[in-house]
Simulated scan of single mutants.
Amino acid sequence: MVRPSGRSTRDEIHWAASQLFRERGFARTSVRDIAALAETNPALVIRHFGTKELLFLETMHLSLDDEPLLDVPLESFGERFVEVLLSTEDDIKGVYLALVRGSNEPNIAARLDEVHHTAFVAPVRARLSGPDADLRARLAAAVVGGLLYALWVVGDTHLAADHRELVVRYGALLQEILTPHG
């Protein structure tokens, strides 16, 4: 069935779930809420996606556009990465928070691990060389994860107060891990 919006019922459910999971997280979003926003029957949500968890896993994907990150020399990567991350935060933030908040579920925790690896560790690792390249990529991911935690989970407004200062300082910290000078 094609709806007045031009999207199929399945597409409407997918869209509604994506919106609600980003806003509320996994636990605070019910199948009934998704169905109501999609203007459909809750039974159709289950029919199309199986379970709420499977729907969550299908809708919550995080990827970064590699192009803005790869078009700079590695020596400029730290600051550039923090700038790109913070300038595209709405979509990234919603998915990140939904994954973190739902990570007590084993399959969602596995998705969070997958996102951690595919969205950050692997692309950064591909840019590095040397025997400790994998360790540096993982350390960089941990540093970025700490920033996201402080800004988006804790909501540290003092840290977020000066955007440019945050980009410069955190970028330098990330850069030192990626291209150590010692």
Rank of each mutant, 00 (worst) to 15 (best):
F77V: 06
E67G: 06
P68V: 07
T59G: 13
P73S: 13
H61T: 12
K52Y: 03
T51M: 04
E53S: 04
L70S: 14
F49P: 00
E75T: 15
D66N: 12
L57P: 03
S76Y: 11
E67T: 14
S63K: 11
H48P: 00
P73I: 07
R47I: 00
K52E: 04
L55I: 06
R47Y: 14
E58K: 13
F49I: 02
R47D: 02
F77K: 05
E75R: 15
I46P: 00
H48I: 00
D65I: 08
M60R: 00
E75S: 15
L57A: 03
D65P: 09
F56M: 08
H61A: 10
F49R: 02
E58F: 00
L55T: 04
S76Q: 15
F49G: 00
V72Y: 05
H61F: 11
L62E: 07
L57R: 02
L62Y: 05
D71W: 04
L74S: 13
M60D: 03
F56A: 01
F56H: 02
G50I: 01
L54K: 13
D66P: 15
G78Q: 11
T51C: 03
L74G: 12
D66S: 14
L74Y: 12
G50P: 04
L64T: 05
E75W: 07
F49M: 02
L69T: 09
E58V: 01
L74R: 12
L70Y: 15
P73Y: 10
H48Q: 11
P68I: 05
I46A: 07
V72H: 07
P68L: 05
S63G: 11
V72N: 09
L74P: 12
G50V: 01
H48A: 11
L70H: 14
F77P: 06
L64C: 04
K52S: 06
L74Q: 13
L64Q: 06
G78P: 08
L57C: 04
D65Y: 07
D65N: 15
L74K: 12
D71T: 13
T59Y: 01
E67M: 11
E53H: 02
L57Y: 05
D71M: 10
K52L: 06
L69A: 09
E58A: 12
F56Q: 00
G50E: 01
G78N: 10
L62Q: 08
S63Q: 13
I46H: 06
D66R: 15
H61W: 12
D71H: 12
E75M: 10
I46F: 04
M60I: 02
F77C: 09
F77G: 08
L64G: 03
L70I: 08
E53M: 01
R47Q: 10
E67V: 13
G78V: 10
M60S: 07
L54Y: 01
E53V: 13
E75F: 07
T51W: 02
E75K: 14
P73G: 11
L64E: 05
V72Q: 06
L64F: 14
K52M: 06
G50H: 01
F77D: 10
G50C: 05
L70F: 15
L69F: 09
H61K: 11
L70K: 12
L55Y: 05
L69K: 09
L70T: 14
